[in-house]
Structure formats: C-alpha cells, structure tokens
C-alpha cells in the first residue's frame, strides 16, 4: 500500500498532468469560437471523433478529477486557517487555494452535469450560447473561471515547491511571478472565449 507521501504527490501531480493540460486544451477549443461558429463546431466534432473517446475521457479526465477532488476535500478539511492572526501574503494564498478548490469543485461538477453528463443532443456553438443566454449563468461562469484559473496557477507554484524543484526564496519568487502571468493569461483567454458565446 503506497504511503501518504505517494497519495499527496499524486494529488499534486494530477493537478498539472492531466488536469492542467486538459484545462489548456479546453481553453483552446473554446477559443475556436473567436474564429466563428463553424470553427468551434469543427473543433468539437474533431474531439468527438477521437477513437476510444470514452476511455480517454475516463482515464485522462474523470478519474484524475475525481481523485483530485475527493482527496482535495480531505486536505481542505485537515486545515485550520488563521489568516486573521497571520496575515502574510502566502498564508492568504494558502487560504484562497482552499476556497477556490471548493468553488472550482462546485463549478466543475455543475458544468460537467449541465453540458456533458446531463446534456441531451449534440454540443454545438448554438447549444453553448443557449446555455449562456441567462446572465446569471454567465456570471457564475465568470466566477468559476476565476476560481479554476487561480487554483490552477497557485497549485502550479505549490507543485514546484512540494516536489522539491524550487528550493530557494528567489526561485520560489520567480515561479510565483510566472504563475501569476499564467493566471492572467488563462483569465484573458477564458473570458474572451466566454464572451464569444454571449
């Protein structure tokens, strides 16, 4: 039976590979909508034509997400936050990492249910814009995107520390800047793509 160390490292690793990679792929496909309805529909059709799609989705998306989510809830539970006494920046990010974890989890569960599992019919530009025609839904998407991207960016920073890759203060600071840029980049891309549907 693997030790705690293994499960923790797996949790951290899965956040980047495949979940982080999938996040990029997802934003890429969404951004096809900037090139028009047809481009987006072609992208979706291509993905749906992937052989063994169910297996790919199961192994590269659903199982990693489920493990990351459930083990993550346990990690959130184990924490007793103290940002009011120890008001350091990192402590706030640590706290936000847990808040964004829960927000992202709720968002992804809802998103997957509405547009994937509970969705009847073909996914298309029209179907997505139909879903997003409700301004409340759009607002929730904006919140969900912010939460997911910040959780991913800060998680990437933590990944480098907890695997023992960034050790020194300067290395950790540099990766923090890189992760901040990553967050801004994803947010811009994500919001622009969202805007293409509303």
């Amino acid at each position: 039976m693997p030790n705690t160390y293994f499960w923790r490292k797996l949790h951290s690793f899965l956040g980047l590979f495949p979940i982080g990679v999938f996040l990029f792929e997802h934003m890429f496909v969404n951004s096809l909508a900037l090139k028009g309805e047809a481009a987006f529909n072609r992208g979706v059709a291509f993905l749906q034509g992937v052989p063994y799609l169910w297996l790919v989705e199961l192994v590269l998306i659903f199982l990693p997400l489920l493990f990351h989510a459930f083990y993550g809830i346990y990690i959130v539970y184990l924490t007793k936050n103290n940002v009011l006494s120890y008001t350091y920046f990192r402590n706030w990010l640590f706290y936000l990492q847990r808040i964004t974890a829960l927000v992202t989890l709720a968002f992804v569960a809802w998103h997957v249910f509405v547009l994937r599992l509970g969705f009847s019919g073909e996914i298309s530009y029209a179907a997505v814009s139909q879903t997003l025609s409700n301004p409340v839904v759009t607002a929730l998407y904006v919140i969900g995107l912010f939460a997911s991207f910040s959780h991913f960016a800060n998680g990437t920073w933590s990944f480098f520390v907890s695997w023992g890759i960034t050790i020194g203060e300067r290395a950790q600071k540099t990766t923090a800047y890189i992760c901040a840029i990553l967050f801004v980049f994803l947010t811009v891309v994500g919001l622009k793509a969202l805007n293409a549907f509303v």
Binding site: R8, Y88, R90, F94, Q97, S158, S162
Partner: peptide, 9 residues
C-alpha cells in the same frame, strides 16, 4: 512532510 501546504507562516 507531504502534509505541508506551503502557507509559509
């Protein structure tokens, strides 16, 4: 050690 969450307090 893996239970460190990098709050860095």
């Amino acid at each position: 050690i893996a239970e460190c969450g990098n709050a860095q307090n």
